[in-house]
Design a protein around this nucleic acid. Structure first.
Lengths: 418, 418
DNA sequence: TGTTTTATTTCGGCGTCCAAAAAAATGATT
DNA sequence: AATCATTTTTTTGGACGCCGAAATAAAACA
């Protein structure tokens, strides 16, 4: 039931609070930090001067001096995170390749690399080493020692076991249970986290607007598959092993069409790109799921057909909307969601889907719960996954590295005396 | 993102830790408390002596001296919670009456009262006052001032809005949105919490075996309705308003049989007592749900028929098992549950239900997730609800009252000087 | 130049924790 | 019975981190 509290915990918590305030609101002066954290000016001075001594914070010039109507009094000294204090690497593994990004500790992307490789046919035993090599190459290109990289975050399509650091199942791979995080961690000596890509989108949304996405929010990713990131009480829910929020593989109708996971009737088997195409073809019940990426133009053709009113196409989107709607209705009944975010390339066709989705939610859940839910659509650029992965990695660095402070300082006083 | 940390927080957290250790493991000596909480002996002495001075703890004689093989050294002094330090009242509101229990702060029930009244026809505007009067009478009978009662916990069948303290919808009442907690709180001047009864069972299970029911567990209540208490990361999940885990009113099949909530195809419309009877009658699709309590003997008759192999009856249990199984499969996909607890009078017929329930889970969720789930059946006595309500109320008292300590002590030092 | 205003730092006090030493309480040994 | 050994509990002194109040810093204003 929680941790013992001592002065160590106090220091960690308050250092973290201060860093979190800066991450969320950008650079600000000490007084403002006091308002955000609830700490006294004296404490802010003390904490921030230690963070500066540790190289984690720095005072910055107020170069973007727009909101400065020449106030009276001593001017504010803006503080910000020292971008050189650490770096993180974000890796996105998807059905059509691997993408890497190196970011400084303010979250700015320093370097980026996109690899269009067929992950599907890659040797599962070598994949971890392959990614590790690419990360090493990325760092070498920037002449950055791996000691300067505090954490690597990996986002993967499909089911990820964060605990074990393995890809349990992913459309990007032919085989199951591919070890990734452990391999990279031991090869490069950098802490490495693996998670589902939709969870990383959720992580990014939290960083973007903490108040909006606090509470209980479901982020639905629609595209080549159906994914979900779940924010429960303001934190991304990973479940016991990290393999939670498998909304795409939550059953919609028993005995429904075949899904890529091998079961029948999953939400994904109704609402993923390949499923919508399959419905339009009129052979949903018999046709096996597609295991290759669907090119975007095929979907665009279908969307156009539906907008023209062709029955097969509109029906397909109706099926997708209904499955998503009932799935969400079930989720609302269980978690009493406050907000649903629809994201991903699949939202291009949201106009075709949304009416059916809403109707299904109305039929599927009691009014009292439904009324509290706000549904929003965010037009997604895939960078949200990279951004979210960076944000998530930095939050972990804040909590697990920066909040502690260098152990050396602990004995500084004693050494000075001696 | 969490609270500012200072010495106040430290004291609260460590006092709470100490109390939690005693609640969970019963009376123990200071050294053992140190082992449980991770605090040093010096701190334990300091904290416990303050708690004793506050009247919250007491030293107890080691009267049940069985495991005392006459060890060497200074003997242990057992500490326990002072039963007189506070009291709590638990109230259970169900379809066939209201039950009250008064417990001391060790959780022992001091007095109890069962009222068989027709809540269904009671005046909704007077109901809160009625319960308040009954509580007052219970206290009067024990000659206990209401100032000695630290909290009232109310468990109700149906949807409860803990935030507002109202019963949103319950089979026990004809009308909706009945104000309860607020009325009682202002009438008696005692903090009052209202929650769903299945959540309270979950609360009780946590107190019974913290390690077993830590992690992510769903407690399913089967009987006159289908309820759920959800334990997420070791804590009972209440959702934003307290109206979460409405598993009974989670949709199973669109367009399914009518439920008491007015929707079609809810899990409850397949698996509650009245639903199983309705299936057996062969008219499930047309027959409206029953709004009155089903007498136990009618269910016993049906169970016997099913055990004899009568098709209608076995079919009815199959339908119930399938609906529960698919519902749980969906829940597993979302939360990646570690444990499912089946409880309530409905578990009498578990042998008839379980095979279908298991089959549905197998069909409804990918192996990787299903393999991590343990399903157990606890033979329920209805007292679990009262016990859970008491445990939950005491945990709140620990955190919100006992952990703080009397405000007077804060200035004691100053007063002594003056 | 002095005054006002606002931000930041310094200083002294307080509360809590902890390690180490001391005290307490009992069994074992002589 | 006196002493030793062992274990629990308390006391003592020091560290750390927060805070309020006072001091200092840095600017605009007059």
């Amino acid at each position: 039931m929680g941790e013992k509290a001592d002065s160590d915990l106090v220091r960690r918590q308050n250092r973290f609070l201060l860093l979190a305030a800066l991450r969320l609101n950008g650079p600000m002066a000490r007084v403002e930090l006091g308002r955000h954290t609830g700490l006294s000016p004296a404490s802010i001075t003390s904490i921030s001067s230690q963070l500066i001594a540790d190289g984690i914070l720095e005072e910055v010039e107020d170069h973007h001096a727009p909101a400065l109507p020449m106030r009276r009094g001593r001017p504010l000294t803006q503080l910000d995170i020292n971008p050189k204090s650490a770096h993180v690497v974000a890796v996105k593994i998807s059905i059509d390749g691997v993408e890497l990004a190196l970011a400084d500790s303010r979250g700015a992307v320093v370097s980026r690399r996109v690899l269009r490789t067929s992950t599907y046919d890659s040797d599962p035993d070598d994949f971890g080493q392959f990614v590790a090599s690419e990360i090493a190459a990325l760092l070498a290109r920037q002449r950055l020692s791996s000691r300067r990289v505090a954490r690597i975050g990996i986002a993967v399509q499909g089911v990820a076991d964060s605990q074990a650091g393995t890809v349990v199942w992913s459309p990007a791979f032919r085989t199951r249970n591919i070890a990734v995080a452990g391999v990279i961690q031991s090869r490069l000596g950098i802490a490495c986290t693996l998670a589902n890509d939709a969870n990383m989108i959720a992580e990014g949304l939290i960083s973007t607007d903490r108040t909006r996405y606090s509470g209980t929010t479901a982020v639905v990713f629609m595209g080549y598959g159906v994914g979900m990131g779940l924010i429960i009480d303001g934190k991304v829910y990973h479940g016991p092993t990290g393999a939670a929020a498998e909304f795409g593989h939550m059953n919609h109708l028993p005995g429904g069409p075949l899904c890529r996971c091998g079961r029948r009737g999953c939400v994904e088997a109704y609402a993923a790109d390949y499923s919508i195409l399959r419905w339009a073809s009129g052979e949903a019940e018999t046709q096996p799921p597609s295991f290759t990426a669907i090119p975007e133009d095929r979907m665009l053709v279908l969307e156009e057909a539906a907008h023209r009113g062709e029955a097969d196409a509109t029906q397909a989107y109706a099926k997708a909307g209904e499955a998503l709607g009932y799935g969400l209705a079930r989720l609302i009944a269980i978690l009493s969601l406050q907000r649903i975010v629809l994201a991903g390339p699949g939202t291009r066709a949201i106009a075709l889907i949304e009416p059916h989705l809403h109707r299904a939610i109305e039929e599927g859940v009691v009014d009292e719960l439904r009324r509290n839910v706000e549904i929003e659509v965010v037009p997604i650029h895939t960078d949200m996954i990279i951004k979210g992965t960076i944000d998530g990695a930095l939050r972990q660095v804040d909590r697990e590295v920066f909040a502690y402070g260098p152990p050396a300082r602990r004995h500084a006083v004693l050494e000075k005396i001696a």
